[in-house]
Structures are given as structure tokens and as C-alpha cells.
Simulated assay, not measured.
Amino acid sequence: MSLNADIQRLERYDETTDTYTLAIITDEDHAAQVELEDGQIAWQSTLRYDLLHREVDATGRVRYRLEEIPPERGGEHRLVSLIAEGGRGAEFSELVMFGKRLVTFDDRTGLVCEIRNENQLVPRQILMTGSGDERFKGFKSEWATLWGDRLIVGSHGKTAPEEWVKILDRNYGLASVDWHERYQLMREALGVGERGYVIHEAAEWHPYRREWLFFPRKVSSEPFDLAIDERERGNHRLVIANEDFSLVRTLPIGECVPERGISSFKLVPGHPDECIGLKSVEIGERTESYLFCFNLEGEVLQEDTFIGDYKCEGVEIL
């Protein structure tokens, strides 16, 4: 009997693996629009590759170390999309290995694309906001994870249409499910109250532990205020829920840096209780991205490591 895709993903490498290739994708918002050589307007994103080394010292302590691959050695590629909504496109917010396919999600248009040959985008589905029947508006995809043989895609959960999730099968067949109760249970676990909010951009299903792991980017017990949100609402608490969300708890990971919030994280194949993650800063025109690593006991395995002055919102292990 073949293994489900979520198990296969974690068993692509075993516990002896100590070097991984990362794919990291940018969401450059308004800066994504470009003019091609033929004069055509398009939208672009950067896909970069890096190496991640897992090192164990004489005491058994695990540390991770990032090694950047220079652009001239194939460490950076341009992805170009000709599809936009409201004059914006190619705002890719997540990366997931779905079987042997690297899949990304445009949080502006709702496009789901396979990435082939390092720089070719192949559209496979268009997700629409909410149930899909409400408005002609692309789904604001923010997080995605494998659950069995299905791909679960979610939004930030701040408003009712963004509490729906999209479920894609291996052939990109689509179902929409309202997750309002699950988002509400996570808000309650984080203690934000009726006036506050939680913004999600990172989640993983853990098939061995049968648990949902959500790492909110922003958490606030006060109403949304953009200037305050950008500088002060970064979060460092991981939300851990059992499969049906009947038990939800939180776990602090390292120290909170209020201007940094988690935009993506992944379980490490071969070491499934260890994770890599991205943190991003977005204050006015200033953007920064950092990579960090941690385990599910709450220990930081790599401190925040600066990777660029642009906003990276998706990471995956190839």
C-alpha cells in the first residue's frame, strides 16, 4: 500500500540527512509589476535556492546553518506571470512539495501554479474567496500544507471569507470548507478576546503526531491599526491542535521580536520534530526577511538569520 503524500514528504530523507536544499519565494506586492522586452506588462517574483546544514556537536546539541547559493551558481531565478487582478499579480505566499511537484500560490489572484524547470509557472487552479460563490475575487492564499493525499490551502483568518479553506486533491479537484470554528478556537487559545485579531500565514499538518501546527504572524488583543500592527504585533507562539481541534494549546518559541512575524514554516524530512521557518518585516516601504529553525519542544536551533531586504513568504525543502 502506498503512503499518503504527507508521510512521503517527511520520508524523502532519513535521520542521516544533514544537508538540505531550500526553495524560498518572494511576495513583492506592488514592486512585482514589470515591463517585458516586448512591451508587455507582467508580474514577477524571485525564487531563490539555499543550502541548509544540520550540525550536531559533541554534546548532542543540534544547530542549523544557512549557506546561500550565489545567483551566478543558480541560486536565484525569476518567475513571470501574465495573470493579475486589479493590476497586481505574482504575489506568491507559500511553497509546498505536492508529491514531486513544487506548488506555489498567488495571494492576489488565487492562482495555484506548479513551478517547473526552476522558472516556469504552470497554472493548475484558481481559488476564489470565501466559499467560492460569493464574489469574483481571488482567494488570499497565505498558508498550505499536506493532509493525507490532499493539499489544504488557507487564508489569514481575520475576516469571515478568509476563514474558509480550500482542499485540493492530486488532480487539483477543489472543495471549499468553512473553518470558522477552528480559527475561533485558535483565537481563544491565544487569548485575544473579542476586540483582538490573529493573522495566519504559516501552518503544517504533522502526520506522525496527528496534530495541526499554526504559527500566526500577528497576534493582538486590540483592534487592527496598521501602523501599530506593522511594528508591534509580531508573534512567537506556536499553536498546536489535535486533529479535530478539540484540544488546542500554545508553545512559545524563542523571544518575540515585535516587528517580525512568521510567514512560512516546514517540518524537516528525516527530523520531523524540527522545523525551518521564515520571518518577515513589513513597515511602510521597508521589507526584510529572516530564516530561523526550531524544534517542537520550543528550542531555537538557529537564530534569526537575515536573508534579504525583500519579503519572502514561502519556504520548502526540495
Rank of each mutant, 00 (worst) to 15 (best):
V219F: 06
R209V: 05
G173V: 04
I167E: 12
D225M: 13
D225S: 12
Y197A: 03
V198F: 06
R187T: 07
V177I: 11
S176L: 09
F214S: 01
R217K: 02
I199V: 03
P216W: 04
A203Q: 00
E194R: 10
K166E: 12
R210M: 11
L190F: 10
P161T: 07
W205Q: 09
R217H: 01
E211V: 10
W164Q: 05
W164L: 06
L185P: 07
G173A: 12
N171I: 11
H180I: 07
N235W: 05
V219Y: 05
L213C: 03
L190M: 14
G234H: 06
G196P: 08
A202Q: 00
Y172K: 11
R187S: 10
L185K: 15
E232K: 14
E194V: 11
G193C: 08
Y197R: 04
I228C: 03
R233P: 03
P216E: 03
T159E: 12
V192E: 06
E163I: 02
Y172W: 15
L213P: 01
E181Q: 13
Y208I: 11
F224Y: 15
E188Y: 13
A227M: 08
E188S: 14
I167P: 01
G173N: 15
W205T: 09
Y197E: 03
W164H: 13
V192I: 15
D169V: 05
D169N: 15
I199C: 01
A227K: 12
E230F: 04
L226I: 14
P161E: 10
H200M: 02
F215A: 01
L190N: 05
H206P: 07
L190R: 05
V177S: 02
R231D: 10
A160H: 10
D225T: 11
A160V: 11
Y208H: 12
E230C: 03
R195N: 14
R217L: 01
P223W: 11
I199Q: 00
D169Q: 05
A203N: 01
R187V: 08
A160I: 10
P161K: 06
